[in-house]
Design a protein around this nucleic acid. Structure first.
Length: 309
DNA sequence: AAGGAGATCAACCGCCGTATT
DNA sequence: AAATACGGCGGTTGATCTCCT
């Protein structure tokens, strides 16, 4: 009946931080034999760990295709937008951030991005401005919120502009270095195979399964303003500039024309938002294959504009 | 210099869907 | 069909680091 007992029930298994020796054993074993069955791996590799612990250590830390260190501005924006679409589905988000693990993204969200959005007056759960939640608030309260947003955005703007400059410099330096490896080895995320229909499914999923409220364009504009600075792009163009500003636009395709400032037609804004997200999701695959080609227009599935999600 | 507070992140826990027997 | 293991996922914890007073 069923399978043999799980290794995790065994006594005397080590827990806690991994030592360099343990890492070496695990690396050497996987390098030679692959991970195969995680349950049986610890014994074969000479580790007093459970298979689950080994798998976690490998996927979150030892895997050779992991990029560590500071998240770029582009990555931050990708996380924020995908989070707006997918919610706390970190593994799904991670598939669109090559070389980043779901654990790392989750940590980064919880320690950095969530706080930053909250600071900007955006609810990190719904991705809507806090003022929206309080429909009974008077105009005085709204203007206070707006003033706070503006003030916070100015500070964020200064900081992120500096980051953007650094990112741009790094990009230019990278362009001057040797060409990237062949496409087959660049496609780091094997699960990043989203097709058109899958992006539609994503949209539908966010729509009716996860209960994630779609973000109106203004919210992204708010972040865009913070990231790029109002003077540089002018009001109403922040969505287009959102990703461009960080890396000089060399390989960015998250560019969707959107209405100026506050459009009375919320549905139109939502369409622009969804187009923006879906465009990014689609392009994340192709951008893994080429860093230079800019795609032409794409037709998108858009969820029916019900006005209420 | 000391220690308290807050931030960070690797690792664990528990649940869930799927595979296997 | 039922029972159980496995792998994966998201939430949480706790050790360590950094900053501030």
């Amino acid at each position: 009946m069923g399978r043999s007992p799980c290794c995790e029930k065994e006594a005397g298994l080590k827990k806690g931080p991994w030592t360099p020796e343990e890492d070496q054993k695990l690396l050497a074993h996987i390098d030679q034999h692959g991970h195969g069955c995680w349950r049986s791996l610890p014994a074969k590799a000479g580790l007093r760990r459970c298979g689950k612990s080994c798998r976690l250590r490998w996927t979150n830390y030892l895997r050779p295709d992991i990029k560590r260190g500071k998240f770029t501005l582009q990555e931050e924006q990708t996380i924020i937008q995908l989070h707006a679409l997918l919610g706390n589905r970190w593994s799904a988000i991670a598939t669109h951030l090559p070389k980043r693990t779901d654990n790392e993204i989750k940590n980064y969200w919880n320690t950095h991005l969530k706080k930053r959005l909250a600071k900007m007056g955006i609810d990190p759960v719904t991705h809507k401005p806090h003022a929206d939640a309080d429909t009974t608030a008077g105009s005085g309260a709204r203007s206070r919120v707006a003033a706070h947003l503006s003030h916070t955005a100015q500070w964020e703007s200064a900081r992120l502009e500096a980051e953007a400059r650094l990112a741009r410099d790094a990009k230019l330096r990278a362009l001057a270095s040797p060409p990237p490896p062949p496409a087959s080895s660049v496609l780091d995320s094997p699960t990043s195979t989203l097709s058109f229909s899958e992006t539609a499914m994503f949209a539908a999923a966010a729509h009716d399964v996860h209960g994630v409220a779609p973000v109106s364009v203004q919210h992204l504009q708010s972040y865009g303003q913070a990231a790029c600075g109002e003077d540089q792009f002018g009001a109403g163009t922040f969505d287009s500039a959102l990703l461009d500003c960080s890396v000089a636009g060399a390989d960015q395709r998250l560019l969707v024309a959107v209405p100026d400032a506050v459009d009375p037609d919320q549905n139109e804004e939502d369409k622009g938002y969804w187009s923006s997200i879906l465009n990014m999701v689609n392009s994340s695959v192709s951008s893994s294959l080429t860093s230079e080609v800019v795609q032409g227009p794409v037709t998108y599935y858009l969820p029916p504009a019900t006005g209420e999600f």
